[in-house]
Structure formats: C-alpha cells, structure tokens
Amino acid sequence: MKHSFLDKYSSLNSFIHKLDPRVKIITTLFFLIVVMTTSPIFLWAFLIYFLIELIILIISKIPILFILKRLLMLIPFILFIVIFAPFISKNGYAGSYNLGILRNLGDGFYNINSVLVVMNVVLKSFLSIIALILLSSTSPFSQLLLGFRKLKVPSIFTNIASFMYRYVFVIVDEVQRMVRARNARNYRGKWIWQSKVIGNMIANLFLRSYERGERVYFAMLSRGYDGDLILNYKYKMRWIDWLYLIIFSIILVLTMFFTR
C-alpha cells in the first residue's frame, strides 16, 4: 500500500528550503510565542503575521491548496469554541463561562467578550498551524529532527519522533489489513456485541506494535546501537542564515513593541 509522505514538499528547492533547519525552528518558535501573546484587539498585528507567512509561503513554492487542506483539521476544534461562545459571560475575563445563557441572550446573542474570545482562538490557531506546516514542509523530517537535536533537545524526544515518522505508515497498513480481514468475515458494526471486536483490534494492534518494537530494537543492537542515533547533519550556518534570523527577529520584536 502506498501513502503520501508526511513532509511532502520538504524536498523542493527554494531559498527557505536551503536555510539551516535550526534557523527555521528558532524563528518558528519565536513567531509562535509572539503570536500567542498578542492581544486580539491589535488586528493590524495579525495582518502583519499573516503577511510574513504569506511571503514565506510564496518564496518556498509550496502549493496554497496543500496548506488549505491541512488547515481543515482545525475546524472541529474551532467549531466547539464557536458553539460555546454564547455562554461566555459579559463581564468576566476571557475563558470564564456562564450557564445563564438567557441572561446573556438579553444583551444580544454574542457579546463583545465572546467575540473577542472567538477571534482570539481562530486567528491564533490558524496562524500557528500555518507556521508549523511551513516549518515541517520546508525541511526534510530527519534533518529537522537533527536540527532539534543540535539545539540540545534530549535525544529521547527526537528518537521517538523519528520512529513515529518511520512506523506510522506501517501501523496504518496493519490497521487497514485488520479492517479488511474483519470486513471479509461480514462485520458490519451494527450490533452492540460487535463493538467488542474494536476493543480486540486495538489490543491486538498494541501487542503487534510492542513486539515490533522489540524486533526493531534487536535489529538496532545488531548494528552496534548504543543509545544515541548518530546521523549526519547536512547544514551549516551561512551568513544568509544569520541574516534571515536577524531580520525575522527584528520584525517580530518591533510588532511586539507596538502591540504592548
């Protein structure tokens, strides 16, 4: 079975793709912190953040449609916030809820406080996710992890992420095979007693993954593994990397300064 890569566009050739992943990790983290801490009343600041992302998107030649598709996954989360917005109390601080919906309704369905909360969540989550999609699709995943490793992130985290990346499709395949074998024996999921089957499948999948983990570990030991994945990092900080880092930081610091 074939699946698309998680980091589908990471091998494109553009200015952004050629940057050292460390620069991209640092700028992305900085960007996320600044976006998160901006008060939602400064709408123009969010416009600037969006423009920054748009410029990176255009330079990196990643298809816009790809990003839009990925953004769809945010909708269920945002939907909940919107549904609960009428319950947000008028005078309370953001995040405080009021079950007296009728009292709220008297002031119009959405009060200014709830509008701010919704705006806050929608703008920030979309901007953050776009930033993360840009990060993960402008560097090959293994090099990105090495970037994290070079930034002194403990190897246990990067190793787990690297195995996740390698085995997620193997597990998806395994699930698909199990579902197929189940359906081939007339499973329709209509009856309560059939729901037990799903529990069994999850347990089965866990056991298979566990045993696979053991076999992979044996294969690693056989090749002299002693606790750290040593891989070669292909990037070096060039003057252009430093320049990008500095310009990006200056823009962010300036917007931070004017939105406080």
Partner: peptide, 11 residues
C-alpha cells in the same frame, strides 16, 4: 532479520 520493516527504521 526476517521482516525488512524491522531492519529498516530510518527515514
């Protein structure tokens, strides 16, 4: 090992 998916774990 028998199953190459166990042997090949890098990206």
């Amino acid at each position: 090992f028998q199953n190459p998916d166990d042997q090949l774990f890098c990206s």
